[in-house]
């Protein structure tokens, strides 16, 4: 009995998730997408997060830096979590910017969070013609009020984007400048 339980323990701790260090410097996120970071980050290597990569500074329940590395035409933007009844959000290469931002809004409201777009503007991202947007969210699961910023561009029919959100108290202001700096270093090849 005890052996069985220890096996369960091992499985659940080692099988589920891990956190990897992302070192300071230039990081190649994929074939075509590179960013440079100053100071290390933590990457949450959880099996359920795809298609995004998730990085954090303060922890899984506090802040998220989401990296979308070349989402293809027809690809689902949200992870396959939830009860299966919820709507999936699919990227189309024909989408104009305003629809891509609505797509992110959908992805970020999938947990019933209240989402409000604060600003959207053109932004040269990764050397391409892109966009930048700011938003607010209220997580309904725990009532935490978040602020966020996102950057993105479509190139060769693929979507590249970085999103960061954290509690509007303390954490978003603390890390916003770092995130803006990272976005400025992005290169799409």
């Amino acid at each position: 009995m005890r052996g069985l339980l220890l096996a369960v323990l091992a499985l659940s701790v080692f099988g589920c998730a891990s956190v990897k260090k992302v070192e300071s410097g230039t990081n190649r996120l994929g074939e075509r997408f590179t960013i440079s970071i100053e100071g290390a980050w933590n990457q949450l290597d959880f099996p359920g997060v795809k298609p995004a990569q998730v990085w954090t500074m303060e922890g899984v329940t506090v802040d998220e830096f989401l990296i979308f590395n070349g989402i293809r035409d027809g690809e689902v933007m949200n992870s396959k979590s939830g009860n299966g009844k919820q709507q999936d959000f699919v990227f189309r290469k024909s989408m104009p910017t305003e629809e891509i931002v609505s797509l992110f809004e959908g992805v970020l409201s999938r947990d019933n969070a209240v989402f409000k777009l604060i600003k959207i503007e053109p932004y040269p991202f990764g050397g391409k013609k892109g966009f930048r947007f700011e938003y607010e969210r209220i997580r309904k699961t725990d009532n935490v009020q978040l602020r966020g910023v996102g950057f993105g561009a479509v190139d060769g029919g693929d979507l590249f984007a970085l999103l960061y959100h954290a509690p509007r108290l303390t954490f978003f202001p603390r890390h916003q400048a770092r995130v803006e700096a990272i976005a400025a270093t992005a290169v799409i090849r």
């Binding site: 910017t97 305003e98 777009l117 604060i118 600003k119 959207i120 503007e121 053109p122 966009f131």
Partner: peptide, 9 residues
């Protein structure tokens, strides 16, 4: 408007 700069572009 939140998207003023974007619409200008």
């Amino acid at each position: 408007a939140p998207d003023a700069l974007f619409i200008q572009s």
